[in-house]
Amino acid sequence: MSRLAAVGVAVLLIAPAFVLSGYHLFQTTMLAVYALAILGLDLVTGTTGQVSLGHGAFYAIGAYVTAILMASFNWPYWATLPVAGAVCAALGFAIGLPALRLRGPYLALVTLALAAAVPQILRAKALETWTGGAQGIVLSGPEVPALLPLSADQFLYLFVLAIAALLFLAAHLLLRGRIRRAMAAIRDHPLAAEAAGIDVAAIKTRAFAISALFTGIAGSLGALVVQFVAPDSFEVMLSIALFVGLVVGGTGSLPGAVAGAGFVLFVPNLSELVSKSAPGVVYGVLLVAALFVMPSGAAGALRRLVASRRRARPDTA
């Protein structure tokens, strides 16, 4: 039965490559990219309770690593992904280390500053040789391997889907076992976790690094899909959009990341039809409403939350 379901899901995921085309296929591809980016954010926020307002920066850096390696150093597209992930993980570790050993809103603060700084750094004259300054970098898309009877768009979608599926699976495994329990303990009872011998700061920092890695790879894939990177696409608003997507989609849940990606991708387009300021209002109002009405997001992570709370403190009964 569950094998049947898995096959069904796989068919459903692969189908867009052959059913959709043009802009719709592009959007579906971006849906997978954003889902991966939000999943990355969820790995830190949903599991440790810490908030990052700067994951757009990791997305941007992932995108630029791919773009620079391809444009300036002629790397093959697929080889840039691990580098993008590693660079973002290292940066995440460096940023997370000082912020996460403190209790309080420091991570949100430093990540917001990161999100504001990165577009400026990307525009900087000193780095223009590699980054292309404000103009950015135009890329050529991945070439379809000769043996596959696929169009460029179809191949791109399937490639993104494969990487995203792989990372979702990794996240699923990561979130299932001992690490998940440790992380939930950190989120709900930091002092008790410390007392139980869990090195809270180290685990949080690692979680943040992994989270940056996921979002960095998403940025890398995004660069391949859009085939263009420029600082303007990676302003603070991107980080905030990812955060809104996470909250509205639901933290601590893999389907939530996909729902959040749909939100990030389609809500601005739809509401921009109304007026230029509508996306902001819609984002803001839905964010606040989501927090009030369904604090655990559209994916209904409420049940999971209650269950984990119950498991975490049996002594209060």
Partner: peptide, 16 residues
């Protein structure tokens, strides 16, 4: 509310 909600509401206000 936990930190996430508080940050979320203030980000919501920022956007609005």
């Amino acid at each position: 509310a936990p930190g996430l909600s508080a940050v979320g509401v203030s980000i919501g206000l920022l956007l609005i």
